[in-house]
Computed example of a mutant assay.
Amino acid sequence: MRTEAVNGTFTSPGRLLEMLTDRFGAFEAIAMASIKLARHVPEDELSMDLLVAEAVLEFGDDLRHASESVAKWVGGGGAQRA
């Protein structure tokens, strides 16, 4: 993931968090598929352990919440509030 532009400027922390949230979607898709497939196949045939899948989904929720909080903080002039 690039964090610096050609002109030497850096990507904002909020944008970095947004990019990570988007990229994390692939892990969430695998986790969701594993949870749904667990109803029909043995757990050892899944692409992700069920405990890991649940943890991935929980982390995804936390990541989205953090991203939303950053967006609100930046949008509301957060640096002045800190």
Rank of each mutant, 00 (worst) to 15 (best):
F27H: 03
V41P: 00
E4G: 02
L57E: 00
S34A: 15
A55E: 15
L17P: 00
W73L: 10
E54H: 11
L46A: 01
D61Y: 14
R15T: 15
V52S: 07
R23C: 08
E18V: 01
G14P: 00
R81F: 11
L50G: 04
A66V: 12
N7V: 04
F10A: 09
G75P: 02
H40P: 01
L17F: 06
E43Q: 12
G76I: 07
D22F: 10
G77K: 09
E68W: 06
A82S: 14
F24L: 07
D61A: 10
E58V: 13
M1F: 07
S47R: 14
A66F: 07
R64L: 13
T11H: 03
E18F: 04
G76T: 09
A79H: 12
G78V: 08
L16T: 07
H65V: 04
A66Y: 06
S12T: 13
L57G: 00
T9W: 08
G14M: 01
F10M: 05
G77R: 07
D22S: 10
G76K: 08
V56N: 00
F10I: 05
T11V: 15
I30L: 11
F27I: 01
Q80I: 12
F24W: 08
T3L: 15
V56S: 00
A55F: 09
G25K: 10
H40L: 05
A26K: 08
P42V: 10
G78Q: 04
W73M: 10
T11A: 09
L16S: 03
L37E: 05
D44C: 09
A33S: 12
G76S: 14
A31I: 03
V52G: 01
A29R: 13
N7D: 15
D61T: 15
T9G: 09
R15D: 15
P42N: 07
L16I: 10
V56T: 09
A38P: 00
K36H: 11
G8K: 03
R64T: 09
T21I: 00
H65Y: 07
I35F: 02
V52Y: 03
A79P: 01
G8M: 06
V52E: 06
R64K: 14
E58G: 14
G77D: 04
L51E: 14
V74A: 08
I30R: 03
A71L: 02
G8T: 06
D61E: 15
G25E: 05
W73F: 15
R15P: 00
E18D: 11
W73K: 02
D49C: 02
D44E: 14
I35T: 09
G8L: 02
P13C: 06
E45V: 05
R2G: 07
S67H: 10
L17T: 08
V70H: 04
I35G: 00
M1P: 05
V52N: 06
M48V: 08
S69R: 07
S47G: 10
T3N: 06
A82Y: 11
F10E: 14
I30Q: 07
I30M: 09
R81T: 13
V70Y: 02
G76A: 11
M1D: 12
A55T: 11
H40S: 12
T3I: 13
K36V: 06
S34D: 01
E58I: 12
E54W: 01
G78P: 01
M19F: 09
K72D: 13
F59K: 00
E28R: 12
E45I: 04
A5C: 11
